Simulated scan of single mutants.
Amino acid sequence: MQSIDDLLAIMARLRNRDGGCPWDIEQTFETIAPYTIEEAYEVADAIDRKDYAHLRDELGDLLLQVVFHARMAEEGGHFAFADVVDSICDKMVRRHPHVFGDARFDSAQAQTANWEALKADERAASGDEDTSALAGVSRGMPEWQRAFKLQQKAARVGFDWPDVAPVFDKLHEEIDEVRAEFAAGAGTERLADEIGDVLFVCVNLARHAKVDVSQALRHANAKFERRFRRMEAFAADDGTRLAALDLEAQDAYWVRAKGEER
């Protein structure tokens, strides 16, 4: 059974300018970052599919990303993998005083409030002077996730609708505004602004429904892909191609594909 030390040694050899891998050697934080994000999504996909053998492999790929970044940081004299481990261990102990200390919380809500207070203290200690309730929402995350985090933080100080009904009202309002912009022949900039409002409210709707936006969209994508591929199969069985058919004929295949799933 190999250990994390073996993986660290493998990465060090790959990055070694004397006999290492040319591709690995030329990589930087910036070039590797997209792969890190991609691997995180691959982990989520394996979880969605309950493919645990694949999940094991994808977690390994994600761990490799951490090791890759840590190796580049060590080469630059910034920190090493051991420092990454120390940092996260310290943070987990510090942020769970009810587990590793004597703190007691009456509810999960009180624990969450304490978690946010601890994070604010950490930001202040690092020199971050942003004291907004929205502080700490990374600009590097996917925008749908950032929308969720911003709404969640605003809700913690009471800026939130009391239930889902007004969210539906707001969604209808924003859709009507998009429709009006289309009717008026608005340009891309205006449409982007209004469609952005619709998407923001959709995230809010998902938040009130306690639905993970990314997971919901992954399921919708998978459903569309599954049905579209069935449409292509139906067309092939009929001796034609989907692209050769008009929209009415294509839609008939779509209805048929949906009917198979019921």
Score class of each variant (00 low, 15 high):
E181D: 13
A249Y: 00
Y52V: 09
A235V: 07
D5Q: 14
V178T: 00
E74L: 04
A33R: 10
I25L: 04
L64P: 00
L191C: 07
A206L: 08
R256K: 13
T240K: 05
Q2E: 10
I32Q: 14
R230A: 13
Y253L: 03
D6K: 03
T31Y: 08
Q151D: 11
A82P: 08
V255T: 08
D121Q: 15
E26A: 15
A206H: 01
E26W: 09
A46L: 02
S138P: 02
A110D: 12
E129N: 13
H219L: 15
E42D: 05
K50N: 14
R226V: 10
Y253N: 03
A186F: 05
M141K: 10
D57G: 10
L118S: 05
E143R: 14
A236L: 12
Y41C: 11
D169M: 10
F79E: 03
A124V: 04
D128F: 07
E181N: 07
A183Y: 01
M11D: 00
D45C: 02
F159D: 12
R241A: 15
K50R: 15
A12C: 01
E232S: 10
Q250K: 03
V201R: 03
D169E: 14
H219E: 13
G101N: 02
K119T: 09
L14S: 01
L64S: 05
V198S: 00
F105C: 01
Y253K: 02
A243C: 09
D5K: 14
D51Q: 03
A53R: 10
A216F: 08
E39K: 02
L205K: 00
D193V: 08
A233K: 10
A108V: 11
M11Q: 04
D51W: 02
D51L: 01
A113I: 09
Q27G: 06
R230T: 12
A184E: 07
G60S: 08
G77S: 08
G140V: 06
V213I: 15
F228L: 13
P97H: 00
A46W: 00
L134T: 12
F182N: 05
L150P: 03
D24S: 14
E38C: 04
V164Y: 03
F182S: 02
E58T: 03
R139P: 02
D51G: 01
L217H: 11
A206S: 09
A249Q: 12
E129K: 13
T112I: 09
R156D: 12
R17S: 14
Y35P: 01
A9E: 08
H69C: 00
G259W: 03
A220W: 06
D18S: 12
